[in-house]
Amino acid sequence: MLDVPHATTTEHNETHFDLRKEAEAAGITDTLQQLEQELVGLKPVKSRVRQIASLLLIERIRQRAGLVSAPPTLHMSFTGNPGTGKTTVALRMAKILHGLGFVRRGQVISVTRDDLVGQYIGHTAPKTKEILKKAMGGVLFIDEAYYLHRPDNERDYGQESIEILLQVMENQREDLVVILAGYGERMTSFFASNPGFRSRIAHHIEFPDYAEAELLVIAELMLKERGYRFSTAAREAFEKYIALRRTQPFFSNARSIRNAVDRIRLRQADRLVSDLDRMLDVADLETVDPADVLASRVFSGGADTRSAKS
């Protein structure tokens, strides 16, 4: 009555496997390639993701060969500074897991403390369960997970949420993969005060900050996506911009670069429009001049409180 997909393979096990075909069938080669191309830098992260993908692929083949295979624990934690690509990698990870059949649906539910923790007694459990139910069969991505735990308040409802999460992470490992993300140091203290989490998470991945050269590549990629390019002088100006911006407060890696790119577009459009009598050509429309970069606040005394947003 029930057609169990693996029922036939367990009876007479396969003995030979075409690894390339297996990897392609699961869509890993594509996803990994995409990861390689679209994400600049992040060497340790990429190699770690590749390792996990390989392990999962081999695990799946082992299963079909009839060898002993324990369902792997897949919960992960991503730590790193703001704007280092944690969310992006989480989305890719979900694709890989789905391709290999370790999660059934492959959706990513991205939440923060507010989505999990309630406002009054009895509010937290249903709220957390609601989110967990939505995430079943996919990946639950908890951003800034350390906020779940408030060490200064013993009666904080976060603890209740943590207990429910831990229980589901342990008992329904095949239904749900949880990825915790947050900034390095605070995640360390979060794990220290919640040892249950640390031991239930198999993969701890650290996201390094980007080097200046990498940030420049990212900026150029972003411009290209939006159909712009730097002039040679503007490129040099932007290099200086990056060097300066990094030393200023509220720097958040790729996110700051994205905001800078958006503001550069704004200034470029403003510059073009300010001279209405001019005939424009395509090159004008897509080229970013040094003036567009140099007008940034970063060059004039740097970030004040308002650049908390930038």
Binding site: R105, L132, M136, Q172
Partner: peptide, 9 residues
């Protein structure tokens, strides 16, 4: 929901 596991829970 996406998956029946939530209902089964």
């Amino acid at each position: 929901l996406q998956d029946a596991a939530g209902v089964m829970m």
